[in-house]
Write a protein that binds this DNA or RNA. Structure first.
Length: 280
DNA sequence: GCCCAGGAGATGT
DNA sequence: ACATCTCATGGG
């Protein structure tokens, strides 16, 4: 790994909140004030000094700015959704929270594991899979492990995966890996648009409407995707007065109600609800 | 022991 | 199209 210190930008971002506590990615580590991960096979460390964001590793400012969504002005959210006071309060409660654009395969693995699971255990499972099957990088700030590629995961015995604790999701991971490796998705799925991407992703075993929405929002840059989990289902009643008990239908209603940035707002509301800052 | 967690799939109507 | 049941696993 290359040494050096690269200036990434001076935009507002809360690295700890976005990378460690926002439940959109589960594989970052924090050591001595730096945040490390392997993105698309490239190890990187991030840290801030006097409001500026720096990186070290096999990376470049352009791809990191894209990953961290630094080009977006999040202050548009409170103007766009001024009609919903609780929503604006949620946005203002977490300055520097950003919605990532992660490598698609990494979000597929992470969110197949997320089904009927909790955040702490999702993180442990992702770490276990990377430690066991991913490539190891020895960097100047410590060792990092990447996600195993789809071509690796497709060849693993589900029973062996299960020993890591993934439970019944073992075959979902292996079979989805095979379909991805066989080219189910194009290079840039974001260009397909929401509906076509959604119908492709839900062909993957272990990927239903909610998990597909997470992959689209956190991995494809499709910000209209509105994943509805237990927290979002609850808050949709109090904030938007939606009573629909069916989460897939609720997600579609919310996408139609909130438009292109629905998913960005969802992330703030989700975090507000999960941390108890939003009364449900 | 029960209930819950960023649900999905199979089955039945 | 809609509701119901089951599916591992760990923590509260």
């Amino acid at each position: 790994m290359e040494n050096g210190k690269i200036l990434i930008g001076t935009e507002k971002i809360d690295l700890s909140l976005t990378l460690m506590d926002s439940a959109q990615c589960f594989h970052w580590v924090e050591r001595d004030g730096r945040f490390g991960a392997v993105l698309d096979g490239r190890p990187v460390w991030l840290w801030q000094e006097d409001g500026a964001l720096f990186a070290a590793g096999d990376t470049d400012p352009t791809s990191l700015r894209r990953y961290l969504d630094l080009e977006r002005d999040y202050s548009v959210l409170t103007r766009e959704y001024a009609a919903y006071p609780e929503a604006c309060r949620a946005v203002e409660a977490f300055p520097g929270l950003r919605v990532l654009r992660q490598p698609v395969w990494e979000t597929v693995v992470s969110f197949i594991l997320s089904a009927n699971n909790n955040v702490g255990r999702i993180r442990k499972l992702v770490e276990a899979i990377c430690l066991r099957y991913g490539r190891r990088f020895d960097t100047e700030y410590g060792e990092l492990y990447g996600f195993p590629g789809a071509e690796v995961l497709r060849g693993i015995d589900p029973a062996e995966l299960r020993t890591l604790g993934v439970g019944y999701r073992d075959r979902y991971l292996v079979e989805s890996a095979a379909m991805i490796d066989d080219g189910l998705l194009p290079e840039c799925p974001e260009e397909l648009g929401y509906e076509e991407t959604h119908s492709l992703l839900t062909k993957l075993p272990g990927v239903g409407d909610k998990v597909a929405d997470c992959i689209q929002l956190f991995g494809c840059g499709q910000t209209e995707a509105f994943p509805v989990d237990v927290w979002v289902a609850r808050l949709s009643r109090t904030v938007f007065h939606r009573e629909d008990a069916n989460r897939s239908r609720l997600g579609r209603e919310m996408r139609e109600l909130l438009g292109q940035d629905a998913g960005l707002l969802q992330q703030f509301l989700f975090h507000a609800a999960r941390t108890g800052k939003l009364d449900l």
